[in-house]
């Protein structure tokens, strides 16, 4: 460390040198915090590597593609092809998006553009409260309320529309893909709505006024000025919802049926990547291959959510142009609204 001298450091504007000793806390703080920040990066890298290492036994036995795309998850015979899990994950996530995203966007539009000012705070709080309910409570409610109550309606639906291929006319299982998707839809509404709200609020008043001044109705103004401008951001919000839906574990495993086959109908039992890990980990404790398979499933899940969330953030940032803290706010809204399971 340099001896006391005239210093040009920004926190020494009076130009008087200070003894190196008194600068120690500053340096310590700076280096301490930098190390902390670097540790985060290393942590993620480390976990990725460990995940991969632990799942290697099953990758070497079945190959990466074999594991991921084989349609045979047979624990009793030690065969691990994760396609049923992948398909189940996709079906439930798709259902969640189809149901949840329009509802979330409708709520976001209503709260920002249409509802009277006094209603805005309570409605916003209530929509955000959806995220405060823990996953396991949604699962509990799903098992004992949703499944029994919806079964007659599901049976009617599948009987009436039996000619549509995926809907089918089979007997409706209690826990099934649809209920899984529905619960996921409920869980992604708060986050998709919160971020959409942020994005919609950034639409400059200029454009909305231009539309109104041309003689547009409220809805026409939304269609002309708000939605096109918010397209990118809302897409990002939907993708964050997708990421959440894919990674959600507990609520899904309680209501999806946990059947390791590819169901042919919307109302069949199914399985997801996250659910299989939660469900089978107990019995896998003493079976290294099974354990490796579950960890491999976790790795696939990890990679999937990483990719989707990276893409999502790209869209959200693009959709929040003009606001410097846009991405931060949206991320905080997302973080607070809950991403996980």
């Amino acid at each position: 460390m340099a001896a006391a001298s005239v210093s040009t450091r920004s926190d020494d504007r009076l130009g008087f040198g200070r003894s190196s000793l008194s600068r120690l806390p500053d340096k310590a703080l700076r280096w301490g915090l930098t190390v902390l920040a670097a540790a985060i990066l290393l942590l993620i890298l480390f976990f990725f590597i460990r995940l991969y290492i632990e799942s290697r036994p099953v990758f070497s036995k079945f190959g990466v593609f074999g594991f991921t795309f084989d349609n045979n998850w047979d624990v009793s015979h030690s065969i691990y092809g994760a396609l049923p899990l992948l398909v189940g994950t996709l079906i439930t996530a798709a259902t969640a998006l189809i149901i949840g995203v329009p509802v979330a966007i409708a709520a976001a539009l209503f709260v920002t553009e249409l509802c009277p000012g006094r209603l805005r705070p309570p409605l916003t709080i209530m929509i955000d409260l959806l995220a405060a309910v823990p996953s396991v409570v949604y699962g509990l409610w799903g098992v004992f309320v949703l499944i029994p109550r919806l079964k007659p309606a599901e049976q009617w639906f599948t009987d009436t529309f039996h000619f549509i291929p995926f809907i089918g006319g089979a007997a409706v299982a209690g826990p099934n893909y649809f209920i899984g998707g529905l619960i996921l839809a409920i869980m992604i509404v708060p986050i998709v709505s919160a971020i959409s709200r942020e994005v919609i609020a950034t639409v400059p008043a200029d454009h909305k006024e231009a539309a109104l001044a041309l003689g547009a109705t409220r809805w026409e103004m939304i269609r002309m000025a708000v939605l096109p401008y918010s397209r990118a951001g809302i897409t990002g919000a939907a993708m964050l919802g997708l990421g959440r839906a894919i990674g959600e574990t507990i609520a899904v495993t309680l209501v999806v049926g946990n059947a390791p086959t590819i169901g042919k109908h919307l109302f069949d039992q199914g399985y997801t990547l996250a659910a299989v890990i939660a469900n089978e980990f107990g019995e896998a404790a003493n079976n290294p291959t099974h354990r490796a398979a579950l960890i491999a499933a976790g790795l696939v899940l990890f990679v999937l959510t990483l990719v989707i969330n990276a893409a999502a953030r790209y869209f959200v940032v693009r959709g929040s142009r003009g606001r410097r803290i846009g991405a931060s706010d949206a991320a905080t809204a997302g973080a607070a609204a809950g991403l996980g399971g």
Binding site: L51, G247, F302, T305, I308, N309
Partner: peptide
């Protein structure tokens, strides 16, 4: 990467800790 962490499913965190 902190952003990335917000998107990680919580079960994966459990797995991390289990492994390590």
């Amino acid at each position: 990467f902190v952003d990335v962490m917000t998107g990680v499913p919580s079960i994966v965190f459990g797995l991390f800790i289990y492994i390590t």
